[in-house]
Design a binder for these strands. Structure first.
Lengths: 142, 142
DNA sequence: ATCGCTAATAAGAATATACCTATTTACTGA
DNA sequence: TCAGTAAATAGGTATATTCTTATTAGCGAT
């Protein structure tokens, strides 16, 4: 996971195929220095693949999320989610500003293994989780 | 918050008006023994208010969530969220089954005040948060 | 009770996301 | 290299959610 090729390699090991559109989507995420919405990703992919469908973008973003390579940031506005590549593989979460929609990395993850184990005991297998803090950033404070 | 009237009273104290549609939505949530989707709420409200709009339902559910009276459970399927009234006011989160969409209450909340204080220091005012664990329940385990 | 202000609503449009199906294409093994 | 197979895609469609605007109605003050 040290490069775009590394990401595609990881996907291939998990049985996913290497398609030009998928490679393009990963490159776009890799080169972006901020989380992107699905629409933003789609617009950029279209520069190389004018006929790429929105479904392809959504499908690949979900695939990358499920593979643990992409973090999905749930906003609470019309553009309801942003996606970012976990370049260093470091799992983390975000602060989301309800006014401007900007997101800020949160270095902590609230989930500990004890909780997960307890869930297993209670007959529920946990495979992923979501966590966001909502509020107002310095610029938008009311 | 010991009855539907109590919920409406709390809302009034916060400056929200008491409308028949809003009262109906709160009653529906109050009487349901499981979390409902916005569409399910809408269908039930229509029995009393045939011309109620979906927007009214969404607006009131968001209002109740922001007031801390309703918990929103983010699913990861087409019906992307369910809502439940916090009858006893106990803040909590959920396990969500990715197969059947059922949700199970989680008695813990991962957010502690220390974290929130730290965010304040870093110029971000936190007003709410979201947390869900995703996986597979006993019946749906793959 | 009535007036005035503002929140709340209905209706419809706009947008985000997920689903469906036929077709294409990446990969596997002969 | 080539054929078979299953995954991936494009395009269209369906649904969920949010926004816009004009109208209605709750509630405080008179």
């Amino acid at each position: 996971m040290d490069s775009v090729q590394g990401v595609l390699e990881l996907l291939r090991e998990r049985g996913y195929r290497r398609t030009p559109q998928r490679e393009c989507i990963v490159e776009i995420l890799w080169e972006s220095d901020s989380p992107l919405t699905a629409r933003e990703v789609h617009q950029r992919v279209r520069q190389a693949f004018p006929h790429v469908s929105l479904d392809t973008v959504y499908r690949n973003l979900e695939l990358l999320r499920e593979a643990g390579l992409v973090s999905q940031i749930n906003l609470q506005s019309r553009e309801s989610a942003r996606f970012e590549l976990l370049r260093d593989g470091a799992h983390h979460h975000h602060l989301v500003c309800l006014a401007c929609g900007d997101s800020f990395c949160l270095p902590v993850c609230p989930v500990d293994l004890e909780e997960l184990e307890r869930c297993h005991e209670e007959d529920f297998v946990v495979v992923s989780h979501a966590f966001e803090l909502y509020g107002y950033c310095k610029s938008c404070r009311p």
